[in-house]
Design a protein around this nucleic acid. Structure first.
Lengths: 113, 113
DNA sequence: TTTATTTGCAACCGAATGGTTTCTTGTCTT
DNA sequence: AAGACAAGAAACCATTCGGTTGCAAATAAA
């Protein structure tokens, strides 16, 4: 199945590098391609996927197209991570509860001695 | 190219769901598969990838195998995001600097009037 | 108005992905 | 000891991925 989301974008190391590149300033496809050992067209395909995932916006200046990051899109990862952290925290709460119960049981037992 | 890292794991929605499932408690492949509309074997393949990515550990109890999350592995995402956020912050610093320079220029001009 | 530059698109290719079905192995149950 | 259950492995399949080369369109520069 064709998946076009931020997680899909992050899955490729070249795309992660492109994200870091564009984090500081907008760049043209040619400028981006200069940083890698792949053809400009390959970079173009990465750009297309990233645009379809709404992570990139374009800004045409003459024949050049400057691509810039839609940084809000990155928040989706944060949101997912928050969800994850919350569940992990809940697990530890349960663990704490178990420990507390054990402690209580132990005290009850002690009092019976 | 075969990539076996946490970003690759996150790329698939079923695997993300498995992560959230295992965030609260360890589970067997069968138990995990019950939550999805795919075969146990398909789940098994997801588990294998996640184990190879060092995100899952196993704990055999008789004929059952409980898989549990290696939560530290998730920190790699956080680390990458930190990197990203730092670069974005730098961009805004530069912008602030530009604005400050403009303001200074304006003041100099004003003083010439 | 040619010519060069920047970009995107299409077709192709080998490898990886996500699923299936079938089979084997190991461990409980009875 | 025999049958049921849990899990992994292998072979297969259609689709996607990440790359390539070649080409067309638009804009800039000569």
């Amino acid at each position: 199945m064709l998946r076009r989301d931020i997680f899909q974008v992050l899955a490729d190391p070249t795309r992660r590098a492109i994200i870091l590149l564009l984090a500081t300033q907008p760049m043209t496809p040619n400028a981006i391609a200069d940083h890698f050992d792949i053809t400009r067209q390959a970079v173009s395909k990465h750009i297309r996927l990233m645009t379809e995932s709404e992570l990139l916006n374009q800004n045409q200046k003459g024949r050049e197209i400057y691509y810039h990051l839609q940084t809000e899109k990155m928040e989706e990862i944060e949101k997912w991570l928050d969800q994850f952290r919350e569940l992990v925290a809940k697990r530890f709460e349960q663990l704490d509860q178990v420990l507390a119960t054990l402690k209580q049981k132990k005290n009850e037992k002690d009092s019976l001695i």
